[in-house]
Each structure stands twice: as structure tokens, then as C-alpha cells.
């Protein structure tokens, strides 16, 4: 049972961060961030370069060390609940000349379901192929991963996460350097996951698409600037605070102008 003293929203949330600080050489890159991801939401983490977006995710997931802070999945420490969390890392974090086919990479998502004496059987292959189908890549199953384009690599990484059928999928810059068709395809898959009641958390860098893709947002610049539903939080005041006045009036007008439209509808 989760600790009964926890807030109800923390117990309900698939990803609740409390007091997370990450530092490299005594310099905090993420400072004391609290953030509760609402269940069933599609949430973006937005902030300028060097704001600690990826560092926050990596530390929260236990990939890098965190200085302080707790991360809970449905009220329990994430270390016990990692089965419920799927992660899509940045595409350039691996060597794509690795001797593996697309299907081998997707099968890595099945790691937990396979014991050492088992060889991956027909059922596992079927599940991997299903995930590949969802991202439109089933024709590429036996292709060497080095032959894929950037967009296709991203689709394969997404398929590897899909095969885990996790409640929460965390993506680190899934739209960086992919073609427009792939971006649309990925957004479609993510929205279909949300419609199944799953939760999505994305590091996102393109401010102009935040409104179209996401319903919740965390504005981050080392510290938490603001968080909540996009319509309430994604406004000029918070954006200026996040980007430290680096957004031009034209950019802001475009972003906030669309906010006015949404508000008026």
C-alpha cells in the first residue's frame, strides 16, 4: 500500500516529483522541482536550452543520480514501479551502427517478460510486430537499424516503448529532427494512447505546437515556473518568466494570440 499520508493527487498520479534537485559539480541544473503529472494527461515539459528538461527526466527515472527528491508512481517509489513506466530516449543517445535489426530493438521492450532460459517466441514477435504496426514500420522489421532515417529511428524507439504497454510513457524530445510525416504519426499514436487512458509526458522544444499537442504543461527553467492546464498556464507572463525575456514580441503575440482565440471560443 502507498503511504496513507500522501496527498490524494500524488497517489492517483503515475508520476509525482517532489523536491527534485539535480546538480553537476555543485551547480544545480534542476532545483527543487515539485510536479504532479495528472493521470490520463498529455503533458509537455517546456523551457529554454539548458533549462534542465532532460536532466529532470533522467534523474527522475533513475538514469542519473539525483541530489534530493522523491519520485512516486501511483504513490510508490519509482524504483518498485518501473514496470509501469516506458521511456523513449533521445534518438542520438545510441549508436545506430549497432548490429541489430528493427525487430531486435523493439524486442528489448519485452525484456521484463523474458527469463534467461527463454528464447523469444512467436508470441513475442507478434507483440513486437503489433507495436511496429502502430507506428507504421512493420515493413521495416528485418531492416538493419543503421539504414533508417531519423524519423524512422524515432518511430522504432516509440515502438519499443509501446510494446511495454505501460501506464506512463515518457519521451525526451520525440520530435527533434524528424520529418513532418513522422511528427504527425507520432502525435497520432500518443493521442491514441491517451484515449486508452494512459499518461504521456514529453520534453518538448517547439513552442508553436504546444497548444495543438498537449493539454498540460510544465514550464521549467532550472526551477518550476508554472504548471497546469495549457489554457491557464501557457500565457505571456509565465512564458516571459521561463524564457527570461528572450522571446520576441512577435513570437509572444503569435503564441498568446492563439491563447486568446482558445479563450474566446
Amino acid at each position: 500500500m502507498p503511504d496513507p499520508r500522501l496527498a490524494r493527487e500524488v497517489i492517483a498520479s503515475p508520476f509525482a516529483i517532489q523536491g527534485l534537485t539535480v546538480s553537476y559539480d555543485h551547480r544545480p541544473v534542476v532545483h527543487s522541482v515539485d510536479f504532479v503529472v495528472p493521470p490520463g494527461s498529455m503533458t509537455a515539459i517546456v523551457g529554454p536550452n539548458g533549462a534542465g528538461k532532460s536532466s529532470l527526466l533522467k534523474a527522475a527515472l533513475g538514469i542519473t543520480r539525483r541530489l534530493t527528491g522523491e519520485v512516486r508512481v501511483f504513490g510508490r517509489p519509482i524504483e518498485q514501479m518501473s514496470r509501469h513506466v516506458a521511456f523513449v530516449p533521445q534518438r542520438n543517445s545510441v549508436d545506430w551502427d549497432f548490429p541489430a535489426r528493427v525487430i531486435d530493438v523493439v524486442a528489448m521492450g519485452l525484456f521484463r517478460d523474458l527469463r534467461w532460459w527463454q528464447f523469444s517466441g512467436r508470441d513475442h514477435r507478434r507483440r513486437a510486430m503489433e507495436s511496429l504496426g502502430r507506428v507504421g514500420m512493420e515493413a521495416f522489421a528485418d531492416r538493419q537499424i543503421g539504414q533508417l532515417s531519423g524519423g524512422q529511428q524515432q518511430r522504432v524507439f516509440l515502438a519499443r516503448a509501446l510494446v511495454q504497454e505501460a501506464d506512463l510513457t515518457i519521451l525526451d524530445e520525440p520530435f527533434a529532427g524528424v520529418d513532418a510525416a513522422t511528427e504527425t504519426a507520432i502525435v497520432e499514436v500518443l493521442k491514441s494512447l491517451r484515449d486508452e487512458g494512459r499518461t504521456l509526458l514529453c520534453v518538448h522544444h517547439d513552442l508553436s505546437t504546444v497548444r495543438d499537442y498537449f493539454d498540460h504543461v510544465l514550464l521549467l527553467n532550472v526551477r518550476r515556473i508554472a504548471a497546469g492546464p495549457v489554457a491557464e498556464v501557457f500565457v505571456e507572463r509565465h512564458l516571459q518568466a521561463t524564457y527570461g525575456g528572450r522571446l520576441s514580441p512577435v513570437q509572444l503575440a503569435r503564441l498568446v494570440g492563439s491563447a486568446a482565440e482558445v479563450g474566446g471560443r
Binding site: S82, F87, P89, S93, V105, M108, W116
Partner: peptide
Amino acid sequence: MRRDFLMVCFDADFARTQG
């Protein structure tokens, strides 16, 4: 250990999220 080795060799970050 073949699967653990393979996971860590290809994508250590992902392997860590898999426990």
C-alpha cells in the same frame, strides 16, 4: 546474462529504466 549485456551495450539509459 545475454539479454542484460545486450540491453546495456545498446542503450544503457533505457536498460536502467527497465530495472
